[in-house]
């Protein structure tokens, strides 16, 4: 305790305004130490944490601005991309319509050609059928005429020849007729 407080204020030496001695040097060192303590305290308690807080906020805001700018740039890219796609779609749709029109024209031409062909075939078949009918009718008419002529001849001959002669003549006429048909 001997090295502790020696006197109180009433025993202290009279003060002074200025002096350059050992006490001034000691006071300077104490004040320097006080300054260091204050700097460390204020630095750690206030200055650095507050600066960090403000820096973090600045970084956060800067990050948000950067993010917004990046999003904006991306949005612009997307708009450009979609515009490109839309113009591409317009071109494609026009191409599709043109292609469909050409295809439709081709198909209509094919259908018309097929229809014409079928009509011609039907016409040809019809003409052929008519020719067949004509031939068939001619044949039937010929046979009918033959039969009729035969009947007329029979009636005529019946009045002048007997049944035996008539039979012979018929056979001869028939054989001639068959021979003629075979030759045809």
């Amino acid at each position: 305790m001997q090295n502790m407080i020696l006197y109180l204020a009433q025993n202290s030496q009279e003060g002074r305004v200025f002096g350059l001695d050992q006490q001034t040097l000691i006071s300077m060192l104490i004040q320097l130490l006080n300054g260091v303590i204050l700097a460390v305290a204020l630095g750690f308690i206030l200055y650095k944490p507050l600066k960090e807080f403000m820096q973090k906020r600045t970084d956060r805001i800067q990050g948000k601005i950067d993010n917004a700018e990046a999003t904006m740039a991306k949005a612009k890219e997307l708009i450009a991309e979609y515009n490109e796609k839309l113009s591409q779609i317009d071109i494609t749709s026009q191409e599709v319509i043109e292609e469909a029109r050409l295809k439709a024209a081709d198909e209509s031409r094919v259908i018309i050609e097929t229809a014409k062909q079928e009509a011609q075939e039907i016409r040809a078949r019809t003409l052929e059928s008519i020719e067949d009918d004509k031939r068939r009718l001619k044949e039937e008419a010929r046979l009918y005429i033959i039969e009729l002529a035969f009947l007329i001849a029979q009636k005529y001959v019946a009045q002048s020849i007997d049944d035996e002669t008539q039979e012979r003549l018929f056979e001869e006429a028939l054989s001639e007729l068959e021979e003629a048909q075979w030759q045809n």
Binding site: N3, M4, L6, A9, S12, Q13, E14, G15, V17
Partner: peptide, 16 residues
């Protein structure tokens, strides 16, 4: 004047 509040004796050195 700058008054002296205490005078200490630290290791034989007087400190105001």
């Amino acid at each position: 004047n700058v008054d002296n509040i205490w005078i200490l004796d630290i290791f034989g050195i007087e400190v105001w």
